[in-house]
Amino acid sequence: MNPSSRPLTRRAVALGLAALGCALSAPAALAQGGFPAKPITFVVPYPAGGANDMLGRLIGQKMGEALGATVIIDNKPGAGAMLGANAVAKAAPDGHTVLVGGLATHAASPHLMKADYDPLKDFEAVGLLGQAPIIVITSNESPLRSLKDIAEIAKKKPGEMMYGSSGNGSPLHLAGELFDAINGSQMTHVPYKGGNAHIIDLIGGRVPVIFDTATNSMPLIRSGKVRPLAVSMPQRLPDLPNVPTFAESGFPSFQFTAWYGLFVPAKTPKDVVAKLSGALQTALKQPEVVEKLRGVGVSPAGGEAAELARLVPQEHERIGRLIKQANIKAD
């Protein structure tokens, strides 16, 4: 044997052991610091320009800053927000595809149409963004002055009180049906095919009332185009101190909000979910974010995954029961 081969063999063994050590430690390194490994895509299941899109872009930007990652917004509207939700449910469970979901994707639409995903099993909850209450609005010239006025007419004259919405199964429609169920009345639902046609008809006096979401109604109220009658929150909104709550108006059991949350595909590693949730909580504590959310009528939540995980099955069951009882069908 060539004497010079002995040092070479030892050196080779040392290098081999070093390489093996690096290989064994790689999974641990990836688990601790490998996420995010590429840009994160936020799927917004609505068209660009609306409240959901704004929430996705705002939160996505702030979470990206907290994670040191680039966030890309991908608008995937369609099928009652289920098109975008299904895309996330089928995505790789690595935390790089996030759904900006909520009431439609996880509680309402799956009961109205056939869903290609299971809202309770195909996602991991990242955290609750916030909730937008229902605000009952009417035209400035309307004789309706309170929620009790609506309740009395709806009860005494079945079918005469009309309320508009952006479509069958929308939060506006569901809120109206819930109010009917609690009031023991029968209003006439007037669905519109999206857009702002229902608002135009409300302002013009052709539809007397709308159970609208705060995200849509707050700009109208601030501009003086409509008159608010009641808000579905435990306390009065700071921006609407003179508008009573449903409880103050005699309907304490009316509980309904449009809620928003972040989801990732099921089987996403827990440490990745925890990183995303932590970034969301950081974003929701920023004064700029709080101000912008409240500016569009959204009351910020804490961003904890457990809070959203508890809410989803409750809302899925409650909204499903309401849809069945009211015999609501998709457009």
Rank of each mutant, 00 (worst) to 15 (best):
F211H: 03
E177W: 06
G167K: 04
T245L: 06
I203K: 15
Q186G: 10
G176C: 09
T215C: 14
V226K: 00
G224V: 06
D180C: 10
T215D: 10
R227H: 12
F246S: 11
N183Q: 09
A197K: 10
K193N: 14
L172Y: 08
V207L: 13
D212S: 15
A197I: 07
S170L: 01
G169E: 01
G164C: 05
P244V: 10
M161P: 03
I210Y: 00
G159C: 14
L202A: 09
P208A: 07
N242L: 12
P158H: 09
I199W: 01
P158W: 13
Q186C: 08
L220A: 06
T188C: 11
P244D: 12
Q235D: 15
Q235C: 03
V243N: 04
G224E: 12
I199Q: 01
F211E: 04
I182G: 02
R236A: 02
V190H: 05
R236F: 06
R236M: 09
V243F: 10
N242H: 15
S165Q: 06
G224W: 12
L237S: 15
D201Y: 09
S170V: 00
M161T: 08
N183W: 08
N242P: 04
G159D: 07
G167M: 11
D212I: 04
Y163W: 12
L240Q: 13
M218T: 12
H189N: 14
Y192F: 15
A230C: 05
D201S: 10
L220C: 06
P228G: 06
M218V: 14
P208W: 00
S170C: 03
H189I: 07
M161Y: 00
F211C: 02
V226I: 11
P158L: 13
G159H: 07
L220K: 02
I200C: 05
F179C: 10
G184M: 11
N196C: 00
P234I: 01
P238K: 13
S166W: 04
I199S: 01
A181G: 12
G167E: 05
R236D: 03
A181N: 14
N242D: 15
G169Y: 00
L240P: 03
E177S: 09
Y192W: 07
G164D: 02
L220I: 05
H189C: 09
I203P: 05
A197V: 06
S217H: 10
S223W: 01
Q186P: 02
M187T: 15
G194H: 13
D239R: 06
E177V: 08
Y192R: 13
S185T: 06
T245K: 10
P228C: 05
P158R: 11
G169V: 04
I221R: 02
V231S: 03
L240S: 05
P228N: 12
G184V: 09
G204P: 01
G164N: 02
N216K: 07
G204L: 09
P171Q: 11
G194I: 09
P238W: 15
